[in-house]
């Protein structure tokens, strides 16, 4: 037998596809955010609210990944934004090639901000670079404050953590300070905001954060 040293990153192909996406976004001047969370944490609901809020202010496009159905795309599309559904057919995350294929339909040049709603999964999506500029995640208060310690990777990779469904705080034992402390132990630079898509709390902060990141991206930061 012969030994061959290869030292090859298994996700090498994905990283190459992500780099190509990123170059395309830069050429088009489009800021791209990868929005992740566990299943049902409120990604689609937040994007519905976001579409309403940003209407007429920026050109927003959404690519939404789900294992099956185009329900999330239909929900978001009702709010007057361009949306494209990707079905992974069993896959537990989006990868860079799926996003590249979606860009044949959603030309980045048509948007100032493109948000990719990843498949609902607190584990896998964090592992796959899509070519986005930032990752953001939602941890809803019904999920438990132990999640950063148990599923660290997403917290480690995100620039922003949204504490979601804070309208439900009175009904659940969720210690926001403990969750934030653990998340920042993994990622000291992590920005945090509290949000409820139901009451509207935090939606202004979220829109401000998004628009600020878009401007920083344009200024080359």
């Amino acid at each position: 037998m012969t030994e061959v040293a290869i030292q090859r990153d298994v996700l090498f192909d994905n990283d190459a596809a992500a780099a190509a996406n990123r170059a395309r976004f830069r050429a088009a001047g489009t800021y791209v955010l990868n929005l992740m969370s566990g299943p049902g944490s409120g990604k689609t609901t937040l994007l519905e609210r976001t579409a309403e809020r940003l209407r007429g202010r920026v050109r927003l496009g959404v690519i939404v990944g789900d294992i099956q159905t185009r329900r999330d795309a239909d929900r978001i599309g009702r709010h007057g934004v361009a949306v494209h559904q990707v079905n992974t057919g069993g896959g537990c995350h989006l990868d860079a090639r799926m996003v590249a294929a979606a860009l044949d339909v959603m030309d980045p040049a048509d948007f100032d901000v493109l948000i990719v709603e990843n498949v609902g999964n607190l584990v896998c999506p964090a592992e796959f670079d899509l070519g986005e500029h930032d990752k953001a995640m939602i941890l809803s208060v019904t999920e438990g404050a132990d999640k950063p310690a148990k599923y660290p990777l997403m917290f480690h990779e995100s620039r922003l953590m949204i504490l979601g469904k804070v309208d439900l705080l009175p009904y659940v034992d969720f210690d926001p300070d403990a969750a934030v402390a653990d998340a920042r132990a993994l990622n000291p630079a992590l920005a945090v905001l509290r949000l409820s898509s139901k009451t509207g709390e935090g939606l202004d902060d979220w829109a401000d954060w998004l628009l600020q990141r878009m401007r920083q991206f344009r200024d080359g930061r």
Partner: peptide
């Protein structure tokens, strides 16, 4: 890390 390091091949 998620990295292939070495392979053993038959000629």
């Amino acid at each position: 890390e998620l990295r292939l390091t070495t392979l053993e091949l038959d000629e």
